[in-house]
Simulated scan of single mutants.
Amino acid sequence: MVKFGITSGNARLRLRAHERDGLDQVVRLFTGLPDGVALEIENNTKAALRDAREEPVRGREYFPARALPLILDLIDHHPVIRAIRL
């Protein structure tokens, strides 16, 4: 299972909560993004997963592990993320 999302609080606290939930590997973590970028990426990712007919296995942001490549592709190719990674 893969979980993606944003938080306006302490990312490490959220990650600890997810770890207690059985999610124990962080694949990508970006902090300090410009206003609106995280929400834009999250909304784009949800729309792409819907288009790919991927259904959440729990809640709104927990998907089967097979969705990870699509999620990473969308994140890694966002212009702001690409600029950060250069």
Rank of each mutant, 00 (worst) to 15 (best):
M1P: 14
V2I: 12
K3W: 01
K3D: 00
F4H: 02
I6G: 00
I6F: 00
I6E: 07
T7M: 04
T7C: 03
S8W: 04
S8Y: 08
G9E: 06
G9R: 05
N10A: 07
R14F: 01
R14S: 06
L15C: 09
L15Q: 10
R16F: 10
R16E: 14
A17Y: 10
H18Y: 15
H18V: 07
E19Q: 15
E19T: 14
R20G: 13
R20L: 13
G22S: 08
G22L: 06
L23A: 11
L23D: 09
L23P: 00
L23C: 09
D24T: 15
D24N: 15
Q25K: 15
Q25V: 12
V26W: 02
V26I: 12
V26T: 12
V26E: 02
V27C: 01
R28W: 07
R28C: 05
R28Y: 03
L29H: 04
F30C: 01
F30K: 04
F30E: 06
T31W: 00
L33P: 02
D35S: 12
V37P: 04
A38W: 03
A38H: 01
A38T: 07
L39F: 10
L39H: 09
L39E: 11
E40L: 12
I41N: 03
I41W: 03
I41E: 02
E42V: 11
N43L: 13
T45P: 05
K46V: 15
K46F: 12
K46Y: 11
A47D: 14
A48D: 06
R50E: 13
A52I: 11
R53N: 08
R53M: 09
E54P: 00
E54R: 14
E55D: 12
R58C: 09
G59W: 06
G59C: 07
E61M: 05
Y62W: 14
Y62F: 15
F63P: 05
P64Y: 01
P64N: 07
A65Y: 06
A65L: 12
A67Y: 03
P69M: 06
L70G: 07
L70S: 07
L70W: 02
L70R: 09
I71H: 05
L72H: 04
D73E: 15
D73G: 15
D73L: 14
L74G: 08
L74M: 10
I75K: 01
I75T: 06
I75A: 03
P79K: 08
V80L: 08
V80F: 03
I81P: 05
R82E: 13
R82H: 05
A83E: 12
I84M: 10
I84T: 00
R85M: 14
L86F: 10
L86C: 02
